[in-house]
Design a binder for these strands. Structure first.
Length: 431
RNA sequence: UGGGGUGUAGCAGAGAGGCAAUGCAUCCGGUCGUUAACCGGGAGAUCGGAGGUUCGAAUCCUCCCGCCCCAGCCA
């Protein structure tokens, strides 16, 4: 290659090198001019002093605009005054393309404007930091499952009428087979795969056509789901706890720079250590009522309830054993309590709320069949799922973790749209 | 789908019946070390749209449109 990356600049001190990238900003002091160049791996300051470069190159400065693409050549110099400690003493500047009126200026903008220009906004510092954390989070999760002998099972995105309940699904014509739905979970397919591999996971986009207009919802989001044969609800929680501690450690190790850029309180993340508190749904309701919530036993927590509850803890907290009425049909009934199912949600602390939903699955043919009938689900579509309870059914559990909500928590964001490169929300399909 | 709010120059943002501030971006000039630089000057707005009240409307009223926030649903 005839150029170097900014991340390698330290090794090149004293050498002449070429950097290719984009002009983040520039500044002129008359006889000395600065260019800040970004190449994807970092940012470096280029310096041109009148008399030390040819007049021809020095005057190119006037043509350069924010986000113009360029190739610059110069000698790498250590200098206290440079951001990052190193700068490039320029001898040559080649313009690749001049950007015309880049819309995102280095001043404040509203969120509507920024997300209308998401294709350009991706270049800004804050989105870069968030998306880097997202990337590391995904690597961490995959690494965890790989190390723990989970097998990746890619579940279908186009599905028939199977899913969790009757939440609104995106529909599309499917050749001669009628209507297909975009997947809202891969779980049922993972349950099929455990009899083959024991421990499996899937990682993909999921879709919900709910017209939610909150800071916690996207219509397209990424979910990692795991399913484990012979795990009960307790063991399922142990696994989730282990996974969360693993990826938080990973991010703390690899993303210091990004978390600092986002002004995240790192000490709050450092408190994410085992064991996580585990409270029953009954206890949670009691705590909430004492805190002034008007929640009644039998209903699910609202966003406000989750916020109140998680602010009571410094670590993520499990809430287990919810009423059957507010959970999905496939969860295993509690052996000793009528109307309660074996499940647990993991709520992130500091008010962030639910990031994982998990449960022990109903492994009994008759009782599951009855639940499917009770929920008025299309029986034919679930025939194969019921089959799994006929041929070597075993106790098993699993969970789903929302990638974006986890990114929101780790980065300390206030809106989920920042946690994904191109958010799809109720009113946004572009860019 | 409800409840609340908002819309003024490319962007951000004052003005709340009487000549539409200001900052950034842009254009011109200046400045030998900047970190969202600074100093001086110029240009840029039929105030979201359509009606109405008024001598006079960005400002008050009605309807429409866009967006934001909150709730529900959930990851």
């Amino acid at each position: 290659m005839d150029f170097h990356y900014i991340e390698d600049i330290v090794k090149l001190e004293g050498e002449r090198t070429t950097i290719k990238g984009w002009l983040q900003n520039k500044s002129s002091k008359g006889k000395i001019q600065f260019l800040w160049i970004r190449d994807g791996t970092g940012i470096i300051q280029g310096v041109m002093v009148k008399g030390e470069v040819s007049d021809e190159v020095f005057e190119l400065y006037d043509q350069l605009t924010q986000e113009s693409s360029l190739e610059v050549t110069g000698i790498v110099r250590k200098d206290q005054r440079a951001p990052g400690g190193y700068e490039l003493n320029l001898s040559d500047v080649k313009i690749v393309q001049i950007a015309q009126d880049y819309p995102i200026t280095p001043k404040s903008h509203g969120s509507t404007f920024l997300f209308d220009h998401r294709h350009l906004y991706l270049r800004s510092k804050r989105p870069r930091a968030v998306l880097k954390v997202r990337d590391e989070l995904i690597w961490a999760i995959r690494s965890y499952f790989y190390k723990n002998n989970f097998v990746l099972i890619d579940t279908p995105i186009l599905t028939g009428a199977v899913g969790e309940t009757t939440t609104t699904l995106f529909e599309t014509e499917y050749l001669n087979e009628g209507t297909a739905y975009l997947a809202q979970t891969g779980q049922l397919y993972l349950e099929a795969a455990i009899a083959s591999f024991g421990k499996v996971f899937c990682f993909g986009p999921t879709f919900r056509a709910e017209k939610s207009k909150t800071r916690r919802h996207l219509t397209e989001f990424w979910m990692v789901e795991a399913e484990e044969a012979f795990y009960d609800n307790e063991e399922n929680m142990d696994l989730q706890e282990d996974l969360v501690v693993y990826f938080v450690d990973w991010i703390l190790e690899k993303c210091q720079k990004e978390l600092k850029e986002l002004e995240r309180d790192i000490s709050a993340l450092e408190k994410v250590q085992k064991p996580f508190p585990r409270i029953s749904y009954d206890e949670a309701v009691e705590k909430l009522q004492k805190a002034g919530s008007d929640i009644q036993w039998g209903s699910d927590f609202g966003g406000t309830d989750e916020t109140i509850l998680t602010k009571m803890f410094e670590r993520p907290v499990f809430v287990y054993d919810y009423p059957k009425v507010c959970r999905a049909f496939y969860m295993k009934p509690h052996p000793e309590r009528e109307g309660v199912v074996l499940c647990a949600d993991l709520l992130a602390p500091e008010g962030y709320g639910e990031i994982i939903g998990g449960s022990q699955r109903n492994d009994d043919y008759e009782s599951l069949k009855k639940r499917i009938e009770e929920e008025n689900l299309p029986k034919d579509a679930y025939r194969w799922y019921l089959d799994l309870r006929k041929y070597g059914s075993v106790p098993h559990s699993g969970f789903g973790l929302g990638v974006e909500r986890t990114v929101v928590w780790i980065c300390g964001l206030s809106h989920i749209r920042e946690s994904i490169p191109f958010p799809r929300t109720i009113y946004r399909l572009y860019p």
